[in-house]
């Protein structure tokens, strides 16, 4: 008797809240359906369609795996994205550590400088790098003027240029995710390590680095996916000599009007990004699961 009387008023207010909880999701579900699920469906559909006859076919997939060019493009995309991910994370880490830990008044300035490039826009910054790296660009001009080299160094229209440009574009995102992660580490852990005799370098190696692995993983993932899906920077800095999937897809659509084949390449790009994200996330969840187990592994 009394338990029922007690339970009833408690259950009452939660009932309407539960339905409205789902209602809140409705607008975003609608938007996602229209702008994400439907184009995806269309794209997958197109990949199985012949561009001329519009009849169902597997030829687009066959061509992707057999023509050599496409797989080479996929490979170049992967190499470029991995390099960008590593560069962004390695370059961003010290900045992130400074931003997370410094209490100096320069911190705000460094923070602004680290994020300011985002305001300039991708195309503008990429043109900036073009001016610097071109055959007749700033670096080559100067080196030739000084007589260090006779002919221009191959600084643009290649992997190097694209990685430099993309690293610059993606770096702020890497810094942000690393900073958040390092900020989440209790500063007392560093002090505790210091009190136990650890030098600054040992503190970073044994405490900060292992504890910021989630941030490192997310920085790698963000940088990888942003690099793999970037178009403007590879197009401008890689040009016709260094093509990645994004620029090849664009080519297929615009010059060859082969939507079916473009769709296959887009799906390949998507699968690669999903696979990498999946691996990264699985690695991270396993790591943290191990640590919260009652019994640890090695002691």
């Amino acid at each position: 008797m009394s338990t029922i009387a007690l339970a009833a008023p408690a259950a009452m207010p939660s009932a309407p809240a539960r339905t409205s909880g789902y209602m809140v999701l409705a607008p975003s579900c609608l938007v996602l359906t229209i702008f994400f699920a439907m184009p995806m469906g269309t794209m997958i559909g197109m990949s199985f369609m012949d561009a001329q006859t519009l009849s169902p076919t597997l030829l687009n997939y066959q061509r992707f795996f057999s023509d050599g060019l496409s797989l080479a493009g996929l490979y170049r995309t992967a190499v470029m994205s991995i390099l960008v991910a590593v560069c962004v994370t390695v370059l961003g880490y010290p900045v992130a550590y400074y931003l997370a830990r410094s209490r100096s008044r320069w911190r705000a300035l460094v923070f602004a400088l680290a994020l300011a490039p985002e305001l300039a826009g991708v195309v503008l910054r990429t043109y900036g790098w073009l001016i610097i790296l071109e055959d007749r660009g700033f670096i080559n001009d100067m080196l030739m003027h000084l007589g260090v080299i006779a002919s221009p160094l191959p600084l643009s229209k290649n992997l190097f240029a694209v990685v430099v440009g993309l690293t610059h574009v993606v770096l702020p995102f890497g810094i942000l995710s690393l900073t958040t992660s390092i900020q989440g580490i209790d500063p007392n852990l560093e002090r505790a390590a210091q009190m136990l005799g650890a030098s600054r370098l040992s503190v970073i190696r044994h405490i900060i680095l292992p504890l910021s692995v989630p941030g490192i993983v997310s920085s790698l993932l963000i940088a990888f996916t942003m690099a793999a899906s970037a178009y403007a920077t590879p197009a401008l800095l890689g040009g016709a000599r260094f093509k990645v999937l994004a620029t090849m897809i664009y080519e297929q659509v615009l010059f060859y009007i082969d939507w079916g084949f473009a769709a296959v390449m887009a799906i390949a790009l998507l699968i690669m990004m999903l696979a990498i994200s999946f691996l990264g996330i699985r690695y991270e969840t396993r790591r943290s699961a191990r640590r919260s187990n009652r019994e640890g592994g090695a002691s």
Binding site: L189, A192, Q194, M195, G197, S199
Partner: peptide, 16 residues
């Protein structure tokens, strides 16, 4: 701190 050979126990333990 790392060369003072002192031990410190924190209020929040600060275990690694």
């Amino acid at each position: 701190p790392e060369r003072r050979n002192l031990g410190l126990v924190f209020q929040n333990y600060a275990l690694f």
